[in-house]
Design a protein around this nucleic acid. Structure first.
Lengths: 283, 283
DNA sequence: AGTAATTACGAGGTACGTAACAATC
DNA sequence: GATTGTTACGTACCTCGTAATTACT
């Protein structure tokens, strides 16, 4: 009794005739007929009421089909379980305070580690640190190096914030701006930007900040409204065809450095990637 | 992915090494090793942590073993279901008012229909009739022919009852007895004798009847006590080495004729046997 | 005629066993 | 040195496809 026979039984039940099932299974009619005969001999029961040109499932045959489908469910479950395991083993969870550093890490590693997926998890800094220690995430991106002895930290990149203003906005002619200059204005900010949102609220207590989760809608609003939005040295290029002006922000909070950290006793696939990134950014 | 590989995986998990499992499976070590390698390639995952002389199941391997055992449970269930079906298809349910007629039917049919099993179900006459009509049983043995048009009945055999007395019993010298002669005595009767038990109670209101279900115990008691028991023309031969005397009973109730009945539109395997028995007993 | 199933026969592929090899306990 | 596992190679079996046959619609 083999799984292949179960697949054949299911196909015959679904398609109604041995011929049709044989076609579906990319098998000749005689081959399928023989295979079913073998199964019948092994079970000691005919599974079909046969005439010379038809083979209808009998009572025992329907019983066999029911069992066959149990096997096929098991097979599906096993394949799914392994596909999931495989995907999970290719995926690193990256706790991060902002999205851009993960883009950077991906760019640095994609050709050296093809197949590896970085799954960003946006979290506050203290939560990133906690989860790394608890091994709930594989890599951590924070605004400060993590100095605990069990891990390594490396300065990954800096990101500088710019106000992104309509060209005719009254602030657009300025060569630089501070948060104080903009406090009280209306803003449009993409969701899922991590610590940036908190930082904006902290520095501009009187700002009206509209948050938009859908990137397409966000882009549309940037083009069609006068709400102030933001770009960074990282995202500027992607927005360059938008008819707005990026004005640098002078506050210290608008210039941040990200640090990448990993536990030193992490699995090899983690330390390998961490080591590769460190090697690149330190060069 | 094939069931054989699931059996192999289970064997390796149980035996601990590929070598031991190969031996159990009547397979060479290299063959089993290769088969597992094929499975690993198909699943895209190693299932073992390998050194040069050991192969221990890893996390994925244990997952695979769990799934493999689901397959094996399914296989067991399927084989059991078919064994049960096969047994049931070889078995005819015979509703009967007494056991002896089924022995007779078995004797008449065993060589013509080897493999067929007759499963006697002891019931009162009216219940036998009802179940045959309801198709809950395949054959019916009653004390009267069944005359409904949907069935055939045939006179199967007669059975005559004898008192079976210790040789020194005061009634043992009689050439014949009636139930009235014995009423008030103590009796030993085997269980599962069908209508006979009712008939004895009906004819001997004051009898003390000890019922014994275990045949071995029954035989022992017949040999070692003075309780009156019974034999018939059918069972006499089996008891002939027992030191007792069989005295015929004259009452009409002690001489019965059994009739075998079957529905005319019963399955072929039933009508075949019924026809064969009718052919023999009518000759 | 056309469809559907079974039997006969030759071919190809797959998985087996034996043998050789490697490495650990 | 014994055990355990992997690789190499030749072989045998098993199942496949093609072709021929039967029978029912």
């Amino acid at each position: 009794m083999e799984l292949e026979q179960m697949r054949q039984l299911d196909a015959i039940a679904r398609r109604g005739t041995i011929s049709a099932a044989a076609e579906e299974l990319h098998l000749s009619q005689p081959a399928l007929s023989r295979s079913i005969r073998r199964l019948e001999r092994e079970l000691g029961q005919d599974l079909f009421d046969r005439t010379h040109n038809s083979a209808q499932l009998n009572k025992a045959g329907r019983l066999a089909v029911d069992h066959a489908r149990m096997f096929l469910r098991d097979e599906r479950a096993m394949r799914d379980a392994f596909a999931d395991l495989s995907r999970r083993q290719r995926t690193l969870l990256v706790g991060t305070v902002a999205p851009a550093p993960v883009w950077r890490i991906t760019a640095l590693t994609v050709e050296r580690f093809p197949g590896t997926l970085l799954n960003p998890v946006l979290l506050p800094e203290d939560e990133v640190e906690r989860r790394l220690m608890n091994r709930e995430i594989d890599l951590a991106v924070t605004l400060h190096p993590m100095i605990l002895p069990t891990m390594g930290s490396v300065r990954l990149m800096t990101e500088d914030l710019y106000a992104f203003l309509p060209k005719d906005h009254c602030l657009a002619s300025r060569s630089s701006l501070s948060f104080a200059d903009m406090d009280g204005e209306d803003f449009l900010v993409l969701s899922q930007v991590g610590f940036w949102m908190d930082m904006l609220h902290r520095n501009m207590a009187h700002a009206q900040i509209v948050e938009q989760a859908d990137r397409v809608v966000f882009e549309h609003l940037v083009r069609t409204t006068r709400l102030i939005s933001f770009v960074t040295n990282i995202t500027r290029q992607d927005r360059r065809e938008i008819d707005r002006i990026a004005v640098p922000i002078t506050d210290a909070d608008a210039h941040v450095t990200f640090y990448l950290s990993a536990l030193e006793d992490a699995p090899e696939r983690v330390t390998e990637i961490f080591g590769w990134v460190r090697c690149l950014v330190e060069a």
